[in-house]
């Protein structure tokens, strides 16, 4: 029992230390891969770190003191959410904490009282509206899958979900697909990079982050890295079980998923938010809903 506690603390601490670095590195890899897909050479894989370094060394222009407070809260709460996840607590709790944290990005934008940021914030809220149902259903799926493998005793605890006899993905293929779908929204990848486009010509200036600069923008970027690591952690959770081979399997799955996201980002054009909501909700009902029904009535 104490061993698991130590394990949980270690993994939470590792997340604080390495969570940002890992996703920063993946972001570099992403740009490299994207460049190669487009037949370019691309920047160094460490480019994202240079960018962040520059943001923090620049003079920070702010509209008001509130911006710093909100950006700082966003970063801290995202990290806290990830810590809860890697400490293996209740996954619903983690997801609820995530939506509270995500709210601060919206507030960071609207508190600026700027037209561009506000427009970005509305789009960000549309994205939340689109992905939120699937997030909750994913948690429910984990609970039910654990229940099936555990003589009917379901659990939302990440520790329990990750230590079943078999990986949860076996029971949750539909939910996994649905989760991948909304992951594109969460990663802010095309075709769903509605609120903060990485391609400046597409977005109304720069969406939610238009009026953030220097250190404030840097904190938001770092928060996104931490968020991405945590989300990939959820992807990994689909593949974890109490066998040793599940760990390399999860790592491979995470990398494949990330590659897939980069690939989709490169081959698709951005859609309008109406289509995003319709698609996301459609996929949620079809993949997520059906999967839940099957778990309830067949197993």
């Amino acid at each position: 029992m104490n061993d698991t506690l130590i394990l949980r603390i270690i993994s939470a601490v590792l997340y604080i230390l390495l969570g940002g670095l890992f996703s920063g590195f993946l972001a570099g890899l992403d740009r490299k891969l994207a460049a190669r897909m487009q037949g370019r050479r691309g920047p160094s894989v460490f480019q994202p770190f240079y960018d962040i370094g520059k943001l923090f060394s620049k003079e920070t222009l702010a509209l008001n003191h509130g911006q710093f407070v909100i950006a700082f809260s966003f970063l801290m709460l995202i990290v806290a959410t990830g810590v809860l996840f890697f400490a293996g607590v209740d996954i619903l709790l983690v997801f609820l904490a995530l939506s509270t944290a995500a709210m601060f990005l919206v507030f960071a934008a609207t508190s600026s009282n700027s037209a561009m940021s506000t427009m970005g914030a509305q789009r960000e809220m549309m994205q939340m509206l689109a992905y939120e149902p699937m997030v909750l259903i994913t948690a429910v799926g984990f609970y039910m899958a654990t229940g099936i493998m555990n003589n009917g005793v379901g659990s939302f605890k990440i520790m329990d979900i990750g230590s079943n006899d078999l990986p949860a993905i076996i029971y949750l293929p539909g939910i996994f697909l649905g989760f991948l779908f909304i992951l594109t929204i969460k990663f802010r990848k095309s075709p769903f990079d509605i609120s903060t486009s990485h391609h400046a010509h597409q977005e109304l200036v720069k969406g939610v982050t238009t009026d953030l600069s220097g250190r404030n923008l840097g904190m938001i970027e770092v928060a996104h890295w931490y968020e991405n690591t945590f989300l990939l952690g959820v992807v990994g959770l689909f593949f974890l079980c109490n066998e040793w081979w599940s760990i390399p399997l999860a790592v491979v799955a995470v990398l494949v998923v990330y590659f897939l996201e980069t690939f989709i980002d490169n081959i698709s054009a951005r859609v309008k938010w109406e289509l995003m909501v319709k698609l996301a909700w459609g996929v949620t009902i079809v993949c997520g809903g059906l999967n839940l029904l099957v778990l309830e009535y067949i197993f």
Partner: peptide, 24 residues
Amino acid sequence: IALVIIAGFILTRLVKTKNTTVYM
């Protein structure tokens, strides 16, 4: 959450920022 927001308010007094206006 309360501590984070309070810390934010304290830190914002310590860090240097330059005031600007909204981008339009």
